[in-house]
């Protein structure tokens, strides 16, 4: 079953005024259940507008969005139901924290779902574990924590709703490299154990290359590409034309291949490149020994 199906979605901001702007233009796509999808696109390409449609924060100007094959806006009064199915973590989510303690803040989402206090407690513990928050942090005020910890609390607040689809809008913006790896690792772990669908919006091609199964490329409000990570990064000229880049390691591999080295020009993670280079060296060694 498809997790999210988008049919001819368009969104126009400030329709009928001089400030009218089409942010998403006739987009159709299907996101399968359990996928890890990377979303990339230049600033203003419509990716933020698109993902805000997935959990009903924005209403389509035209077109339909189906979550688990049900039309989201069939009954606008029931839109909250879909917000629990599709969790959205905004950019800089730590600015939404407000409760006295970390535990209470994480519990905000699940409490809104109307779960029993025991269930909420369980969800909070579970979510805290996913983002690596120790138990003693749970009773602290969220405002005492460091920036990276606040970020993880905010992400846990959405994970605790256990949404079928988890969307993260640049969850690593402004974090140091270690915090970034940690947060992304936790998200990957969550995806693995829960088997939920994850959408990751990022400007870092390296992160996308490392974690995503498929990549959605947005350009000027339209879907430019939606394919496996390998296929997307193989089209580096097209990406460059959209103001996007391929991971650095792809560029190195391509350069090496162009210089006549027997290496796959389309490898896009450091791991792949390493294996190829090691294999190459081993092969060379074998040649010399022979």
């Amino acid at each position: 079953m498809a997790a999210i199906t988008v049919e001819h979605l368009s969104h126009v901001y400030s329709q009928g005024t001089p400030f009218e702007k089409t942010a998403v233009d006739d987009v159709s796509l299907t996101i399968e259940e359990g996928e890890f999808v990377g979303v990339i696109g230049h600033t203003g390409s419509g990716k933020s507008t698109l993902i805000q449609h997935f959990n009903g924060l924005l209403k389509p100007t035209s077109g339909r969005i189906l979550v688990e094959d049900r039309d989201m806006w069939a009954d606008p009064k029931k839109i909250r139901e879909f917000r629990f199915k599709v969790g959205l973590v905004f950019q800089y989510p730590e600015y939404q924290l407000f409760e006295e303690t970390v535990a209470k803040d994480i519990a905000f989402g699940p409490s809104n779902m109307g779960l029993s206090p025991e269930e909420v407690q369980m969800r909070v513990q579970q979510a805290a574990q996913f983002v690596g928050l120790r138990a003693d942090k749970l009773e602290k005020s969220p405002f005492e924590l460091s920036g990276g910890q606040k970020r993880r609390v905010a992400i846990a607040g959405v994970m605790a709703m256990n949404p079928k689809v988890l969307i993260l809008d640049e969850p690593t913006a402004g974090l140091d490299p270690r915090g970034r790896d940690k947060v992304l690792g936790e998200i990957k772990q969550y995806h693995k154990t829960q088997g939920n669908t994850v959408l990751l919006v990022s400007h870092s091609m390296e992160d996308i290359a490392r974690y995503a199964d498929r990549v959605l490329v947005m350009n000027k409000g339209k879907v430019a590409m939606f394919d496996t990570t390998e296929n997307v990064f193989a089209r580096s000229e097209e990406l460059a034309a959209m103001g996007l880049a391929v991971p650095q390691v792809s560029r190195i591999c391509r350069g090496l291949a162009a210089r006549g080295l027997n290496i796959d020009p389309n490898c896009y993670t450091i791991e792949q490149a390493k294996q190829q280079l090691l294999a190459l060296r081993a092969g060379k060694g074998a040649d010399q020994n022979a």
Partner: peptide, 16 residues
Amino acid sequence: EETDKIMSAQKARGAD
């Protein structure tokens, strides 16, 4: 703008 953003974020967490 900030209020708009925070409202969206809390709505995403099911705030009514």
